[in-house]
Simulated assay, not measured.
Amino acid sequence: MSSIDDAVKRAIVSSRQPRDHDSRLRRVAARRHAGQGLGYLDRVAREREGAERRSRGLAPFGTVPATTSARMSAQKRTNTTPEMLLRKQLHAKGLRYRVNMPIPGLPRRRADITFTRAKLAVFVDGCFWHRCPTHATDPATRGEWWRQKLDGNVARDRETDEHLRRLGWSVLRFWEHEDMEQAARVVAAAVSRSDR
């Protein structure tokens, strides 16, 4: 009797499981798109391409020296000193805001400070990473790679500004070397204008 019950249970359980492999294939495709779980042939092709570039005296795509990678990883992305100074000034003026809020419609991009009711996004940009006209420098080592990286940052900033403006937001950007007390006055004026 129990063997019949077990057979019925197995039949019920197996009928609940999908018969096709579409869901598994979708998961594999998603991992591949994210760069995870590459198959053997994909890894071989990448290794071959890297070896070919090295033989011509070029660095493989997407590689940077370990010291540069460590230095870039150590850079703070949020709560930098200038950003904290601006937030302190804004809080002292009685303004309340959101920090590090995702930008709608743009994955992996965030505004440093946002006033959602006023639809105001505030960014505090680092002089090196965003190419300040006063303090921008071009690294000598791997100059072409850095030029492309930093130009890409600036282009992404412009794209973010345009996207927010299309959504009806105002955008304020300040350089890290600017006086944050003055920047707080500008932000406070913009918030009070939007309240009217």
Rank of each mutant, 00 (worst) to 15 (best):
R54L: 15
R131H: 07
L167N: 09
Q75Y: 05
V99H: 13
T80A: 03
Q17E: 10
V191T: 03
T78G: 12
T114Q: 11
E83R: 07
A30T: 11
T116C: 08
C132K: 09
K9H: 05
A51M: 11
R166P: 02
G168S: 10
E162W: 04
R87P: 05
E49A: 11
H163R: 09
V28R: 01
D112T: 13
R117N: 10
L85V: 09
W175S: 08
I12T: 03
A66D: 13
R142T: 13
D151Q: 13
K119N: 12
Q182H: 06
T114F: 03
R173K: 00
M72W: 09
P107Y: 02
L38N: 01
V171E: 08
H91Y: 11
S192G: 01
R96G: 07
G126K: 11
K9C: 03
R147F: 06
V187H: 00
N100S: 10
T160N: 12
G152A: 10
R10Q: 12
T68R: 06
G152M: 13
G39F: 02
R43Q: 01
Q89W: 05
M180P: 01
D157G: 07
S14I: 03
K9I: 14
D42K: 04
A136F: 15
S194L: 04
H21V: 10
H135G: 08
N79W: 09
Q75N: 12
G105Y: 15
D157L: 13
M1L: 07
R77H: 08
T137P: 02
H21Y: 09
L150E: 05
L41F: 05
G152R: 14
S73D: 10
E83S: 11
E181F: 02
H135A: 09
R109V: 08
P133T: 15
R27S: 08
G143P: 03
T81Q: 12
D6W: 08
V186W: 04
